[in-house]
Design a protein around this nucleic acid. Structure first.
Length: 467
RNA sequence: GGCGACGUGGCCGAGUGGUUAGGCAAGGGUCUGCAAAACCCUGAACCCGGGUUCGAUUCCCGGCGUCGCCUCCA
């Protein structure tokens, strides 16, 4: 597999550090407010990275952190008059449920910054002892000029940064480029004890410390949104490697950002679409497919048309799979699997992989139409759809029991509920159709449609699914 | 200003030095009580100008345009 490594900005063959295993660390979100649709993209992209490696047979350890203390969380708590724990609980819950509905598998480890203060303090002490960091009035700063490699990830050099420098030197900073690894507590802020007095960690140090703790030195893949390349990831590498963890991570993957009306979405400007609302409006599957239609490194415009397009494509996929109910025994079509693998091995060409899937669907449909064996095509579909995480969820009816029951009772069906009632209605309709009582048949179809169930008449009988 | 990415048919979106990507939408067929689904066929593209080449959408140079990072940000 070839991966575009941000470190070096080239396509590189992926070789795990430990044969048969892949260790991944992905920067999760700062849980200060509800997730926007941009957060969904990184979650889905790296979920697919993980699924693909697992599908290839690797034993994957996936770590995704939660930043649960920073300036913005503290501000949000103050504004709303609640504790930071409550902010984290509310926002974190919204993230969790959004991930779940997007079919993003939970990480193996989900460390929180506040639960790793000792590890961070230890790393800061190491940095100080190596003269890469220095305390100043309760803060501790990293000395950027003490680390000659600074800038290697983001591809910039210190002097260029300096010319673009806009920040006034902080009180204790020796150099405007230096950044805080530990921030002394101001009155009223949450804090932890440290050798430099009460305070809290700087943003970047948490990832350096937690990635090292769970994945060790030189783990395989570090991921995150492209906007994290600088300064966050640059600083992460710098701290970790300055503390002696060399190399910090071997491959760096960054997903492209989402635009809204041509402009990047951003929490700070409020230029966002709420992820949960987007999922409700367009359905979770359509949102997930929307993310996967485009190569993961490209920027994408989030817009109504694209989501409706994705929804239609998804319907096509699922409609194909419904034609062959239940699991299939056949081995997946080899040529399709090879093509899929070829696309994915090419720096996770998820869009190319989808093209393979659609070719499988077209030929599978053609064979089913012609009453030829489509088993290998269906099996290939199952294989691919699962790696992409786009499988159709089970068609439960729990949320529309009342509608179904009312409809059933209206037609004289008693004692049946839920799916049994649906079956009874379908049976009743079949009788009506056999007697050419089209009005009754249509009444049942329309009633079920209104309740959210779509009927399909096929040569093999009637199928139903949620609309 | 510095660094970087990108510019493909109505829309979205892969890819390649010479041969059909794919999806959505559109038109025409087939199938069909209705509905849905499906299959077949059709049209349409490679920002502009140079260069390299037998031949460039694909390589090189220049231009134009869009976007990102340089400050918290997936």
């Amino acid at each position: 597999m070839r991966i575009f490594n941000t470190l070096g900005r080239t396509l590189q063959d992926f070789e795990p550090g430990d044969p048969g295993k892949v260790s991944m660390y992905v920067c999760g979100a700062t849980v200060q407010s509800r997730p926007h649709v941009g957060h969904g993209r990184y979650a889905v992209v790296f979920d697919v990275v993980r699924r693909y490696f697992e599908w290839l047979g690797y034993d994957v350890t996936y770590v995704r952190n939660i930043t649960d203390v920073d300036d913005k969380i503290i501000n949000a708590a103050n504004e709303m008059g609640i504790t930071i724990e409550e902010v984290v609980e509310i926002a974190g819950g919204a993230f969790r449920s959004a991930y779940e509905s997007l079919n993003v598998a939970a990480p193996d480890i989900e460390p929180r910054a506040t639960e790793h203060i000792p590890e961070m303090i230890e790393m800061i002490e190491e940095l100080i002892s190596r003269d890469h960091a220095y305390p100043a009035d309760g803060d501790v700063y990293f000395s950027v000029r003490s680390f000659p490699d600074y800038g290697k990830l983001s591809g910039r050099n210190i002097d260029e940064l300096r010319s673009g420098e806009r920040i006034e030197p902080g009180e204790g900073k020796r150099d405007p480029l230096d950044f805080a690894v530990w921030k002394g507590a101001k009155p009223g802020e949450p804090s932890w004890d440290s050798p430099w007095g009460p305070g809290r960690p700087g943003w970047h140090i948490e990832c350096s410390a937690m990635a090292h703790k769970y994945l060790g030195v030189g783990f395989d893949i570090h991921g995150g949104g492209h906007d994290l390349v600088f300064p966050h990831h640059e600083n992460e590498i710098t701290q970790a490697e300055a503390a002696g963890h060399v190399p910090f991570a071997r491959y760096w993957m960054h997903n492209g950002l989402l635009n809204l009306s041509g402009e990047k979405m951003s929490k700070s400007t409020g230029h966002v679409v709420d992820l949960v609302e987007g999922i409700e409006k367009y359905t979770p599957g359509a949102v997930r497919l929307f993310y996967l239609r485009t190569h993961y490194r490209k920027p994408v415009e989030f817009g109504e048309e694209a989501l409706i397009d994705a929804r239609a494509s998804l319907d096509r996929m699922w409609a194909f799979r419904r034609r062959v109910p239940g699991p299939v025994e056949d081995a997946p079509l080899e040529s399709a699997i090879d093509a899929f693998k070829g696309a994915m091995d090419n720096d996770l060409d998820n869009a190319g992989a989808l093209a393979v899937l659609f070719e499988v669907i077209r030929e599978g449909n053609r064979r089913l139409d012609a009453s030829e064996d489509a088993g290998p095509w269906v099996a290939a579909y199952d294989e691919i759809i699962e790696v992409l995480g786009l499988e159709e969820p089970g068609a439960g009816v729990e949320d529309i029991l009342d509608e179904i029951e009312t409809l059933a009772l209206g037609l004289g069906i008693e004692g049946a509920s839920g799916e049994a009632a649906v079956d009874a209605l379908i049976e009743l309709r079949a009788t009506a159709r056999a007697n050419k009582q089209w009005a009754v048949a249509d009444q049942i179809r329309e009633g079920l449609t209104a309740a959210g169930i779509v009927l399909e008449d096929t040569s093999d009988g009637v199928r139903w699914h949620r609309g």
